[in-house]
Simulated scan of single mutants.
Amino acid sequence: MRFSIPRDHPCLAGHFPGRPLVPGVVLLERVLEAIEAVHGPARALRVPQVKFLRPLLPEQPARVVFEGAAPRWRFEVHGDAGVLARGEVVADG
């Protein structure tokens, strides 16, 4: 799944003034959307492991890649500079 976060996204207002960076929680939201787009909605998901490696700036293109099947997926978020984040999502219940 490819995405970019627009400059006027509400999450950027305070993160950080003068040099906005896309918060990690927004990247994780895109990861969950990508998994659910392929595997359907999940009732309870958790992220037992995630590492943020590089920042994503507003308007920069990124994409989510993942592997696995319910109840466990490994993911990476890629940007122009390489891997931005990687981790694991687990479905509970």
Rank of each mutant, 00 (worst) to 15 (best):
G40T: 08
P17S: 15
L45E: 02
G14T: 06
G40Y: 08
E36W: 05
L57S: 14
R54T: 00
L21H: 11
V47P: 02
A13F: 14
P58E: 11
V38Y: 10
A44N: 08
R54H: 06
A13I: 14
G14P: 07
R30E: 05
R43F: 09
A44F: 11
K51A: 01
L53T: 04
H39W: 14
E29P: 03
A42E: 10
A42D: 08
E33C: 01
L57C: 13
P48G: 02
P23M: 08
A37F: 06
G40L: 10
G40Q: 07
P17M: 15
A13D: 12
P55M: 10
A44Q: 09
L12G: 05
H9D: 11
P58W: 13
A37P: 00
V50Y: 02
L12P: 04
R7V: 15
P48T: 03
L27D: 02
K51C: 00
R54N: 01
A13H: 11
P10N: 00
P58I: 12
C11G: 06
L28G: 02
L56T: 04
L53H: 10
P20L: 12
P20Q: 13
K51M: 01
A13Y: 12
A34Y: 00
G24L: 01
F52G: 00
Q49C: 01
P23E: 12
C11V: 14
E36Y: 04
R46Q: 15
L27P: 03
R7S: 15
V38A: 14
P17V: 14
L12T: 04
R30P: 00
P23V: 04
E36R: 11
P10S: 00
P10V: 03
F52R: 03
H39V: 12
P23C: 07
R46L: 12
D8R: 06
H39T: 11
I35S: 04
P48Y: 01
G18I: 04
H15F: 12
A42F: 13
E59C: 04
D8P: 09
K51Q: 02
P55Y: 08
G14D: 14
V47K: 01
G40S: 08
E36Q: 15
A34G: 01
A37Y: 05
P41H: 14
V25N: 07
V25Q: 08
A34M: 03
H9T: 09
E33D: 05
C11L: 11
L12M: 08
G18V: 04
Q49S: 05
L56I: 06
P58R: 11
A44M: 10
A34R: 01
P41L: 13
V25W: 04
L45M: 10
P48D: 01
G14N: 10
E33W: 02
